[in-house]
Design a protein around this nucleic acid. Structure first.
Length: 619
DNA sequence: AGCACGCCGACT
DNA sequence: GTCGGCGTGCTC
């Protein structure tokens, strides 16, 4: 037995394993894939055993402190998945393994030895399906689950956020009692308990947010990704993986079906379906007429450019009929920024290169770093006294609504009021405690939308014109969600200065997607080219620029296709200057391989280099 | 990723 | 004189 020395990898951005001596009492316990506690510099860390040896490796070795598991916690399938993740998303294997199994040691019991083996063989065939469910979503998912159950296999259902779990779980439990939820709000102990239940196949369905994708079922037969286009599926920390992508990979590796479900799919999935790489099913009903009523604000009188005549009429009408109204505003706060009409300067955040939002009580707040200050009464640049509030946030709309509809009960719903728990909102409406809801994205939930009679999108231009290549896609998806949520029975009024925009004129999904795909193709944007975004950040602008140039030269040498370097649309956040380079997939050297080569560059200065494979946003 | 060490500028 | 910024290198 080669159990004298072991190589261990940690949750660090270091590929290299570290060697340790195994004390005699642990000799019979160490196996590759198990976790150990080991001294590391001044601290103790948990790592995975990746190699064993009888010969003493070079250098001075420390002894491991303890062995955690009686059996490797991750089976071969999950281990291979971690390997793939580290390669695809450019992180160390240690970091990938940590994503798959993030439980800190004090809460862990040992795994019993009889579990953890997966036969790895499967007779089923990629199959990836893109499903536009219309109003048949639960019906469809239930039938997938029932079919899978007949095969005596387990299933994972992914939803974008915690609030959506319970509703789904209740419906699925009618088909399959042995269903559990899994998400990050559970205590570590509870999560581990449920993890073990999945590992032992004591449950057949796990429904949850991101982390449930790594459910350790021994015979996984199905993954359902609900609202597959959701940006919540993208992990914000390294490794910045997309759960949808991982679901697809798991399906391919373990040879089972993956169902991507969406009423307004991501461009990526739509494109794969169009190429017939994914099979596609559309259950949504044909729409009659347009998606929504579009109001051209240019044609309104100046006093009606916040509330168009049409929107006012619809609100009045709804109030008379005792129906609730929702007004969607894309920003919280009162005004987007303060502009001096004498010198043209804008009051900016000292840490971030963006305007400070003007809030009630003359508070100026940075929405990126949280910086707060009192609004100046004179312009700090020229001393002028004509500071103008530009743009309409939720607070300002709320004020205006109260003025215009004095009898109505108005309530504001945004991050300043609701941290993110929106589950109470439907009650407000049902109990008729509110007539007009003014709020941000928080309100765009099916259970809320289904209870209102009129939805007004105050100024869709703010979304359409975000400096991000997915602005159109995001806006289309938002509008689709609004239309779908209100079940087609409500009025949806979209106010804009650009009524001819193709997002607003799409008569069907095909209409929008074919148009958007054309643009993406012309410009070399995803899904036609795979992107890797290299984000270069640092306190000093000259250094950030220099580092960008250094990386650029390497990119040119390799002959890669690229964009930039350029300052990010959010060019300075929390005191750090931000530049980025977009690597675009070209035949030849693999982008991820290249990233691994430039990674050491990151550590040679105070510059931080972040890697985002398949970025969802380039702000 | 942490953390320590070592080199410079700007203060009691 | 030394406090503290950050650039550099190491962790078995």
């Amino acid at each position: 037995m080669n159990n004298k020395y072991i190589a261990v990898i940690f949750n660090l951005p270091i590929e290299k394993p570290f060697w340790y001596r195994v004390p005699p009492e642990f000799k019979n316990e160490v196996k590759i894939g198990q976790r150990v506690l080991a001294p590391f510099g001044k601290r103790e860390m948990v790592g995975f055993i990746v190699e064993k040896s009888e010969k003493k490796p070079r250098g001075r070795l420390k002894e491991i402190i303890r062995v955690f598991d009686k059996f490797p916690p991750l089976d071969n399938n999950l281990f291979s998945l971690a390997k793939w993740m580290s390669e695809y998303y450019c992180c160390s294997l240690g970091q990938a393994l940590h994503s798959l199994f993030p439980f800190p040691y004090p809460y862990l019991e040992d795994l019993p030895p009889e579990i953890g083996l997966s036969d790895g063989k499967d007779e089923d065939k990629e199959n990836i399906y893109l499903v536009q469910p219309g109003d048949k979503k639960f019906e469809l998912v239930s039938s997938f689950i029932a079919d899978n159950r007949k095969l005596e296999k387990q299933a994972i259902i992914l939803v974008p956020e915690i609030n959506l779990i319970t509703g789904f779980e209740e419906k699925i439990k009618k088909i399959e009692k042995r269903t559990i939820s899994f998400h990050s709000k559970l205590s570590i102990k509870e999560r581990y308990k449920r993890w073990l239940m999945m590992k032992k196949a004591e449950v057949n369905v796990a429904i949850g947010t991101r982390s449930v994708i790594f459910a350790p079922f021994p015979k996984l037969g199905l993954i359902v990704v609900d609202q597959e286009e959701s940006t919540d599926y993208k992990q914000k920390e390294t490794p910045k993986y997309n759960v949808r992508q991982i679901a697809i990979k798991r399906g391919k590796m373990e040879k089972f079906s993956v169902f991507l479900i969406s009423d307004a799919p991501s461009l990526e999935s739509w494109y794969q379906a169009k190429k017939k790489v994914y099979k596609s099913f559309n259950f949504s009903r044909r729409r009659k007429g347009s998606f929504f009523e579009v109001v051209d604000l240019k044609k309104e009188k100046k006093k009606d450019r916040i509330f168009s005549r049409l929107l006012q009429d619809k609100i009045k009408d709804a109030l008379e009929k005792k129906l609730s109204v929702m007004l969607f505003v894309s920003r919280r706060g009162y005004a987007s920024f303060l502009l001096c009409s004498d010198c043209g300067e804008v009051i900016r955040c000292p840490n971030c290169n963006i305007g400070l939002s003007f809030h009630l009580k003359r508070e100026m707040i940075c929405h990126y770093c949280g910086f707060r200050t009192v609004a100046p009464s004179v312009c700090p640049f020229c001393g002028g006294r004509n500071l103008k509030k530009i743009g309409w946030g939720t607070q300002r709309v709320e004020n205006e609504v109260k003025k215009r509809f004095p009898g109505a009960r108005v309530k504001r719903f945004d991050l300043d009021i609701f941290k993110s728990s929106t589950y109470l909102i439907p009650d407000y409406i049902k109990k008729r405690e509110v007539d007009i809801l003014v709020g941000t994205q928080l309100l765009i939930k099916e259970d809320i939308l289904s209870l209102v009679g009129v939805v007004g999108v105050m100024l869709v231009d703010v979304l359409l014109n975000l400096p991000d290549f997915r602005a159109s896609e995001r806006t289309f998806q938002l509008l689709t969600r609004i239309r779908k949520g209100s079940r087609g029975k409500n009025s949806v009024i979209v106010q804009t200065y650009n009524p001819t925009h193709y997002v607003l004129n799409a008569k069907s999904n095909e209409d929008f997607y074919s148009r958007e795909l054309k643009i993406r193709k012309q410009l070399g944007y995803p899904p036609y080219q795979r992107w890797v975004r290299i984000l270069i950040e640092g306190k000093r602008k000259d250094q950030v620029k220099d580092k960008s140039e250094e990386i650029l030269n390497k990119i040119k040498k390799e002959g890669f296709n690229f964009l930039g370097p350029s300052p990010c649309p959010l060019s300075k956040i929390k005191g750090s200057y931000r530049y980025h380079i977009i690597l675009r997939d070209t035949k030849g050297k693999n982008m991820q391989e290249f990233i691994r080569e430039i990674n050491p560059l990151a550590r040679r200065s105070s510059i931080k280099i972040g890697i985002d494979v398949d970025p969802l946003s380039t702000m």
